Simulated scan of single mutants.
Amino acid sequence: MDKSKKLLISKISLVILGLLVIIPLLKHLPAILELTVSVDKFRDYIISTGKIGPLIFILFQILQTVIAPIPGEVIQLAGGYIYGVPLGTLYTTVGMLVGAGIAFFFTRLLGGNFIENLIKKKKFKWMTDIMGHKNFSIFLFIFFFIPGLPKDYLIYVAGLTTIKPLKFFGILIVSRLPWLLASVSVGASVFEKNYMSTIIISVIAGLAFILGLIYKDKLVNKFSD
C-alpha cells in the first residue's frame, strides 16, 4: 500500500473516531457547561466520582482546552481545592497538554480548511495577520502568558503554521504553567482557609487580566506590522 493510501485511511479513521467522540459530546454539552459554571458544583461532582475522579477531572480539562466556552478557571480552582497544589497542577497540566495536542494535530492533519474559514471572519481576522509573521513564536508566548487574551483559538491557529510541535508545546507549557499554578493555588488556599494568599494571588491575576484586555489591540497591531 502506497503512502498516499495509508494517509487517506489514517484520515478516514481519525474522522470516524472524531465523530464517535463529538456526537455524544454535543448531546451532553449543556450538562457539561452547567457543571462548569460553578466551582462548588464542579467540585462536588468530581468528588462524587470517587477513585476515578482524577481521570474525570483531566477529561474536563481536555474538553476545556478543546472547547473554548468551558471556563478553565472553574476547573483549575476546583483542582487546587480537591487535590492540593502538586496534584492539582499536575492533573491540570496533563489535561491542558492532551487537549492542546488534540486541537493542534486535528488542525494540522484534518481540519485546516475548517479553521482557515473560521478565522477569516472579521472577529478573528487579526489571527490571520500574525500567522506568517517572523515573530509568531514570540506572539504565541505573550498571548499564552497574559491573562485575558484569547488562548484556546490560537492553538488551532498554530496548527495551520509551520511551527514545529516540540517548539509549540514548549512555548505552551512555559507560558501557561505560572497561571495554571496560580489558579490551582487559589483553590488550595480556599480549602486551607488561607484567605490572605487567595486575595494576593487573585488581585495580581485580576490586574494582569485587566492589563491584557487593555493592551490586547496594541499587541496585535505591534506583531501584525
Rank of each mutant, 00 (worst) to 15 (best):
I23M: 03
I155P: 05
L35W: 06
L118Q: 00
S48C: 02
E116D: 12
Y91P: 07
L59H: 08
K120E: 13
G72D: 13
V94E: 00
I47N: 04
F114G: 01
L29M: 15
F105M: 02
L35C: 07
G88A: 09
L55E: 08
L14S: 07
G88Q: 10
G84C: 06
L25R: 10
I70S: 10
T92I: 08
V74I: 15
T65A: 12
Q61T: 13
S48H: 02
F114Q: 03
K122P: 04
S13Q: 03
L149F: 12
V15M: 08
L33S: 13
L35V: 05
G132V: 05
L59S: 15
G112P: 11
T107W: 10
I46V: 14
N113H: 11
P69H: 04
T93P: 06
I75L: 15
L118R: 00
F60I: 01
K151A: 08
Q61I: 12
V21N: 00
G148L: 05
L154N: 04
I32Y: 04
E34C: 09
I67P: 11
K134M: 04
L97W: 00
T92D: 03
G53P: 07
V15D: 02
I58P: 04
I16N: 00
G72E: 10
F124L: 11
P147K: 03
L90K: 12
D44A: 13
F106G: 11
F145Q: 04
K120A: 08
G79P: 01
R43A: 14
T65N: 12
G53T: 03
F105K: 06
K134I: 05
I70K: 13
P69K: 01
I67T: 13
L149T: 15
L19H: 03
I67N: 12
F105N: 04
T36S: 08
T89H: 05
Y153D: 13
F57P: 05
K120Q: 13
S137D: 13
L17K: 02
T92K: 10
L110H: 05
I70V: 12
I138F: 12
L87V: 15
F139W: 09
Y153W: 14
S48L: 02
M131N: 10
Q64D: 08
I142D: 01
L90M: 14
I23Y: 03
